[in-house]
Design a protein around this nucleic acid. Sequence first.
RNA 1: GGGCGUUUAGCUCAGUUGGCUAGAGCACUGCCCUUACAAGGCAGGGGUCGGCGGUUCGAGUCCGUCAACGCCCACCA
Length: 842
Amino acid sequence: MTRNIPEKPSLEGLESKWGAVWEEDGTFRFDRTKTRDEIFSIDTPPPTVSGSLHMGSVFGYVQTDAHARYRRMSGKEVFYPMGWDDNGLPTERRVQNYYGVKCDPSLPYDPDWTPPAEPSDPPVAISRRNFVDLCHGLTQEDEKVFEDLWRTMGLSVDWTQTYATIDHVSQRTSQKAFLENLARGEAYSQDAPVLWDIDFQTAVAQAELEERDRGGAYHRVAFHRPDGTPLYIETTRPELVCSCVALVAHPEDDRYQPLIGSTVTSPLFGVEVPIVAHELADPEKGTGIAMICTFGDTNDVTWWRELDLPTRAVIQADGRLQETVPDWLSGHAADVYSEIAGLFANQARRRMAELLTEAGDLDGEPREIMHPVKFYEKGDRPLEIVTSRQWYIRNGGREDELRKELLARGEELHWVPDFMGVRYRHWVEGLNGDWLISRQRYFGVAIPLWYPVSDAGQVDYESPITPDFDSLPIDPTSHVPPGFDESQRGQPGGFVGDPDIMDTWATSSLTPQIAGHWVDDIDLFQRVFPMDIRPQGPEIIRTWLFSTTVRSHFEHGELPWHTATINGWILDPDRKKMSKSKGNVITPMPLIEEYGAEAVRYWACNGRPGVDTALDMGVMKIGRRLAIKVLNASRFALGFSDVDVDESAINMPLDRSMLAVLAQAVSTATSAFEAFDYARALETAERSFWEWTDDYVELVKTRAYEGGPDAESAHAALQVALSVYLRLFAPFLPFVTEEVWSWWREASVHKASWPRVDEFAGLTDDAAVLEIASRVVGEVRRAKSDAKTSMATEVTRVTLIGSAEEVENAKRAEDDILGAARAKSIQYVEGEFAVEVVLVEQ
RNA sequence: GGGCGUUUAGCUCAGUUGGCUAGAGCACUGCCCUUACAAGGCAGGGGUCGGCGGUUCGAGUCCGUCAACGCCCACCA
């Protein structure tokens, strides 16, 4: 092929130019005829499309892309799909805000309804189906934005292999896997207290909790013993005195031991409650004796369950205390309760403090404290505990045997970096319950079950009716179970559909099965599963990584992937974690426009695996400079000939020495990539390339311009080296390397083979030749710099003082040294290394 | 309260199994339009490798301990 080298190569426009070519040519299209051992499969994280774009999104994906490109060049067929996580609460919340709507499942579907032009305030109530339609529509727009970003960044995903966690295949996969879990007894439902978000009005799982420090106050409240003496407890939740079912102290606490088994009455309400003993009661906290309410915190749930206490719940799903007076209160107690009925917990708390004070049962002023309070990670108000029927998948939180098996999976998984495995272990060891997967929300995969209704009108939750696999996905609120018809919905002798959806993790825990088409293309699935790598962020080890492991363990009896590569956090330039709440999120597009996609990629690939990395425009500038350098150096290296020069021309010691040095770099970069250390591979290539341009290129210049066979050797060596450097950089700088490749090669550099050391067989000489030549020229440059003169200045005489070996090696590159030094002659003296330079005749 | 990670030049970071005067880029200083590159090149100044204590012929690297920062987990009395 004839070389076609532009006069003034530039980075401008390369992203769109090559993005279009790759799409057109199907460069990254997956070839499914390959077998499992020939394939490298990636369980790409589906980004939450309703979330904000920020540099954190770019960071990990680019690192993975670099690795994918390495594997592709190494001869693997890379299965690199892209998913969109559009399922679930984040999308619902975005739709609510974007259009000013809220979902009211009691409303009928209105096929003609269109969203208001401006977000409506207050929100318009719409039917569940209208609401879900809006979610679908908006997520498609959001997905487009992400796809554009990924394409601009040059991710080498196969864009024909995309999925969305709410699409047909995902729903089918999710429902089928759930039904399999149910059939094997791995999924079950239970009516029990759960952590509950009062704003979203849904149950939440342990994995979605976070604790936030909130102000509270210890209220020292008097209960009364039969003889009237007060017994003080301390509580931050005096509004729950009406829900108190017992007081609890540690069994070995001498202060309270004599009271165990006796009763006290609650203040204001006069309810008689027992004093019980349990190890969980901490003698150090408060007065050492605590009030057990149903339910103020997860401790209460434990005590209630283990001590078999009655239930006296007043907090409703909306977070308010119920309006009607509870049946365990009457007379004066009922009057007191009416003071707090219908209030939110925090309002009731203040009122109760006043009432307790009036009654003389509050000792002193409430004592302000800061304490950790459980929140739903996406929520704004503290979680309450509400009893409700929910679906669970076993995860070892309640069974030692399963927990051990899942811990063993964590050991079996190859973690990069390895210390990330500890986070998995700690999470599994710390689980305190099974995985709650049902959510009382709308936009998600339905729990594919109906329940029979008895002739007496009772719903039988213990005998769910399941759909046929072929009918999946189904929506039990609109589809009818086999053997029934719609008129029997909700009727005695009929059925009801489960109104709940599954949590988003219940579906995204199946991404290998979804991307690999487990439900509808088992041939493809077997070619890609178990996947090679799962790249992801550290914060979702407890959710995504763990839940995917659980599902695969149950469904396939093996790990879903061989290796998990965990990326670090992105910190803002002040080294603070970027988060929306801090308002320091930096979006990628402006940076890409300013520095170019390759500069941003360079920055991302400079972050070490798993290491938190600060956003640094300085690093991006270096990346941009490197890309420009690649263009210019390539122009030089290819500019001596119109066609390829035969490698057999490479016979000059300096050229062969350079190739020996280059072979070293190839070896190092390759082993770095094999260890998933893209950053070291980049650093190796970059350092080597920079030395190549600074030293070798300067040394060879004079000879390269002279013509003749010695020049041919240089031309061929430059060409071989450039071919290697372009391929070493291709995973990191896909656009500029492709551009240069196209000047003199037919196919894509991304389909070229990763450089191998055996390419240099027969082309190398002692690396020491280039090394000594570079040192001598370096000393000459220093002399010129010290003399404050141009590097073009002629040198009268150079004297190299060195060992016999150094002298010998220098002699083998003497003409090149003289040319680069602009020297007329060089003399050699044996001794300790030094270079004497005489600039002008003395 | 526990766990993990980080701490190396003013800034952002390398430093693979312990081994010669600790590296890079940015920033700073000086010089240079040298036929790939002046939105560049060349050269240079700058570091008690967080503190303390060990192991060793030798420690940025291994061990102990303390501190700061970050993240994760932990029963809200």
